[in-house]
């Protein structure tokens, strides 16, 4: 029961979607059924995000209760969760500060705290990539040299000053980079990766539908 029921559910839902691929979505029963399942998966999947949130609260709450290391910071995590969540759940008819619209607490926290912090977190990567370029980007072998030369050429090609520099050389170097590196070797590799990954995803899908692949269920 613990394994058979999920396998049966995965098989049925998968098969309906697969069959619907061959039928007119708007005019057939299979099409209508698959559309219903798509709506269901949006609902069920939405709950997974809520589950994740509950898990974060549990982990942080436990750490605060037991006064684990950095518990005071975890307390701020909890405060932030509730500060964003509670006002967004209250009806905007009570106050314009509630709900999700512009002017609400929820929106304010997003615009003035979350968005700039998310952007800054990723902006710090610019420093790390510069440091990595200095420390780790070495022409240790022929392969690494090839990578290094291409990276340098593309870095020059993608900026106006670099392009002006490349144009000092004869033979329209920027166009050669676009045609033979980006639309030649790079395109070929990306195509190979896309084809390989898509074949892998399709075969994995088949394994899930047929119940061969069950690792997503976890243990027990």
């Amino acid at each position: 029961m613990r394994t058979a029921a999920p396998v049966a559910v995965a098989f049925l839902s998968g098969v309906i979607l697969v069959i619907s691929f061959f039928f007119n979505e708007e005019k057939t029963v299979v099409g209508g059924l698959s559309q219903e399942l798509l709506n269901w998966v949006i609902i069920v999947g939405g709950f997974t995000l809520l589950l994740g949130m509950v898990s974060i609260i549990r982990v942080n709450w436990a750490a605060v209760q037991r006064r684990k290391e950095n518990w005071i910071y975890r307390l701020f995590t909890l405060i932030a969760i509730f500060a964003a969540a509670i006002p967004s759940l209250l009806p905007p008819s009570w106050s314009p500060l509630f709900g999700r619209a512009e002017g609400s607490i929820y929106d304010w926290l997003f615009v003035y705290l979350q968005a700039p912090m998310m952007a800054t977190m990723f902006a710090t990567l610019a420093f790390y990539i510069a440091s990595a370029a200095y420390r780790a980007f070495r022409a240790r072998s022929a392969d690494a040299t090839l990578l290094l030369i291409t990276a340098t050429l593309v870095m020059l090609w993608r900026v106006p000053m670099g392009e002006a520099f490349l144009n000092l050389f004869p033979g329209d170097v920027p166009n050669i980079i676009n045609d033979y590196i980006m639309n030649g070797a790079n395109l070929a590799v990306q195509r190979g990766i896309i084809i390989g990954a898509a074949l892998g995803a399709a075969s994995m899908s088949l394994r899930i539908i047929l119940g061969i692949e069950r690792t997503y269920m976890g243990k027990g």
Binding site: I43, L50, G52, Y73, A80, S88, Y106, L113, M117
Partner: peptide, 19 residues
Amino acid sequence: HIFAGLTAGYQVGLIWDTI
């Protein structure tokens, strides 16, 4: 830590409302 909390809390209102 505030960033982590806001990111988790942000989903609640969105999922509650849209889903």
